[in-house]
């Protein structure tokens, strides 16, 4: 595991003016970065105030109200939306972990004819996301009988070039000594994967899991296209109901509250487990 760095580097980093400037700059960037989300939080609790000029104020100079949340919750069945989104993310991830581990192993450790070509073939998928291929993909999904089903939302993502790439990198950073020892002990190739490589590659998988869940939690266009019944909608599609009105007047508080509801689970999870999240990211790139 990557050891935490010492607080101050040996060799005597001084708190000189350059260092203070750097800290000030970093804090400045963080301040700017956080304002839109801070505003989201403040505005979601601010009483509806049409015509107020201080809608942008980040200062909570009001009695907080949950009216915006109530209105957002009223306009969609959030329990259902959360459940569907979780099902989609979990389903995609489960299948992906299987496909990317197998393929990642093949690319990292096996030499076979056409490996280069196939690998580039895989990487094609990095670029060709469903929005580009939405019309043909929708036809395929319908032919498979998956139109308007959660499985239909998931299916195009079951193979992941990004995941295969990441797993290949991760496997490559695992020293071969482990495998050689296992082979001496009489392990078969699939035991090698399951017993030796997968446990060692877990941090890489966690990193991939985060990337995968985040991107599918946030996906909009494809679920909007595939799903038609209310029972199968996901969070982002639900959110669209109060943000994308064509002739709408502006209800910024409700938009902020709805955005909060959609983003909260991921933000909370990250806030609580950020050390694990970051550590797994840090680990995935290295030996």
């Amino acid at each position: 595991m990557a050891a935490p760095r010492p607080l101050m580097r040996a060799g005597g980093a001084r708190f000189d003016s350059g260092r203070l400037l750097a800290i000030a700059l970093l804090a400045g960037v963080a301040l700017v970065w956080s304002t839109p989300l801070l505003w989201m939080l403040v505005a979601s609790l601010r009483p509806q105030n049409f015509g107020g000029l201080d809608m942008a104020s980040l200062w909570p100079d009001f009695t907080p109200t949950l009216a915006n949340f109530a209105e957002a919750l009223e306009s969609a069945d959030f329990a259902r939306l959360y459940l569907n989104t979780i099902l989609v993310c979990a389903g995609i991830l489960a299948v992906q972990l299987a496909t990317i581990t197998l393929a990642g192993y093949a690319f990292a450790r096996l030499s076979f004819r056409g490996r280069e070509v196939v690998f580039y073939g895989f990487l094609l998928q990095l670029m060709l996301v469903p929005p580009i291929l939405i019309v043909p993909n929708l036809t395929t999904i319908t032919r498979l009988g998956l139109y308007d089903s959660l499985l239909g939302v998931m299916a195009p993502y079951f193979a992941s070039a990004f995941g295969v790439f990441l797993m290949r990198q991760t496997f490559r950073t695992i020293p071969r000594d482990f495998e050689e020892a296992a082979v001496v002990d009489g392990a078969s190739w699939w035991q090698l994967i399951w017993r030796v490589l997968v446990p060692l590659a877990r941090p890489g998988m966690v990193a991939f899991a985060i990337v995968s869940v985040v991107s599918h939690w946030n996906e909009f266009l494809w679920p909007l296209m595939v799903v038609s019944s209310l029972d199968n909608q996901t969070l982002t599609v639900g959110l669209a109901s109060f943000t994308m009105g064509a002739e709408s007047a502006s209800q910024w508080g409700v938009i902020a509250a709805g955005t909060c509801l959609v983003a909260a689970p991921l933000l909370l999870a990250f806030g609580l487990f950020q050390r694990q999240f970051v550590n797994s990211f840090l680990f995935s790139g290295v030996k």
Partner: peptide, 15 residues
Amino acid sequence: IEMFFPVPVEGKLAK
């Protein structure tokens, strides 16, 4: 039967 409908104004119209 299914009917598709847009909500051009506010979310509460969907309800």
